[in-house]
Amino acid sequence: MTAAIPPLPAPLDLLACRPARPVISVQNLPLPGNPAPEPPRRMSLPELGNQPRFSAVETPPAPVTPPMPSPPSDYTDEDLRLAIAPLVAGVMGGGSFHDDASLEAMLRSTFRRALAEHQVGPFQQPGVGHRTLWHLQALFTSRSYDEIVSDKIRRFHVEEVYLLDRDKLSLISYASSNPVRHAHPRKVGSFARKLALRVQDDSGAYMFGFELGEGRRTLISAGQYSLLVAVIRGEVTGLAKTDLEFALKRIERRYQQEFAQGVPLLEELQPLLEECLLIHSPAAPASP
């Protein structure tokens, strides 16, 4: 039995529920391969006259040269006062200055080292006439030329210094104003032994000094590890003893460990002992 199937009704309800498509104009359609058009924007241009100038080849900036330091000016008394203020602070109490022999010796040593850079010694060499006259006086009076010069200037100066071991009295180091003796230790060995035999009296106590003749004498300073024997020509004052004690104290303080271990210090101590050769009398020179 065959039956005829009626056609399905059209989905009118579904078509009626669909939203209406927007109408797109042809002018608003994007072109393939081209970006979407942007609305025009306003650009601000710089004012005329303020634009930077450009050259064809840019020149690198020149290097900045630091200013040259100005040469130091001459030092004044105020500069000296500021330099020694830390040294004097230790001997100031209650706003008053107390005389300290060690501080005075330290200052004298500092100034001697500074002056030694500009001159050989405290005196200049006399002229030919005076040297000839003084040599003749030494010849006719059976005295040495150095004795005549010491009598003329009436000042003392240290000629040699010897540092001896306090227990063994052996030579540790030395310095001499004679360059030949200063360069060769064997030339002072016998003289150092003669000094070692005379530094003690009969009771074994250390002496303060003894005469050597020809206007020379010794001045002995005793330290913890060593003895400093200075050979001085002329009349010795208390200033020389204070300066020598300060020099010995500084040497033993710096080389305390080496002294305790018995390390040889012949060459190491010679520069410090050379400063003792600059010790001389501060008295005014005699009138001609």
Results as ranks from 00 to 15, higher is better:
residue 6 P to D: 11
residue 15 L to Q: 11
residue 18 R to Y: 10
residue 21 R to H: 09
residue 23 V to Y: 06
residue 25 S to E: 13
residue 33 G to N: 10
residue 34 N to C: 06
residue 35 P to A: 11
residue 36 A to C: 01
residue 36 A to T: 06
residue 41 R to V: 15
residue 44 S to E: 05
residue 62 A to V: 10
residue 64 V to N: 03
residue 66 P to I: 08
residue 71 P to Y: 00
residue 77 D to C: 07
residue 81 R to L: 14
residue 82 L to Y: 09
residue 84 I to E: 05
residue 86 P to G: 04
residue 89 A to M: 09
residue 93 G to V: 14
residue 93 G to I: 12
residue 95 G to M: 03
residue 98 H to G: 13
residue 105 A to M: 10
residue 112 R to E: 04
residue 116 A to N: 13
residue 117 E to C: 04
residue 119 Q to G: 08
residue 123 F to E: 06
residue 124 Q to H: 06
residue 136 L to W: 08
residue 156 F to I: 03
residue 160 E to T: 14
residue 168 K to L: 07
residue 171 L to F: 03
residue 181 R to V: 04
residue 196 A to Y: 02
residue 197 L to H: 10
residue 198 R to N: 15
residue 198 R to G: 12
residue 201 D to C: 03
residue 203 S to H: 10
residue 207 M to Q: 15
residue 212 L to D: 08
residue 213 G to L: 08
residue 215 G to C: 08
residue 216 R to E: 11
residue 217 R to E: 14
residue 224 Q to N: 15
residue 224 Q to W: 08
residue 229 V to T: 06
residue 231 V to N: 07
residue 238 G to W: 01
residue 243 D to M: 09
residue 244 L to K: 01
residue 245 E to F: 01
residue 249 K to L: 15
residue 252 E to H: 08
residue 253 R to S: 15
residue 263 V to Q: 14
residue 266 L to V: 02
residue 266 L to Y: 07
residue 271 P to N: 01
residue 276 C to A: 13
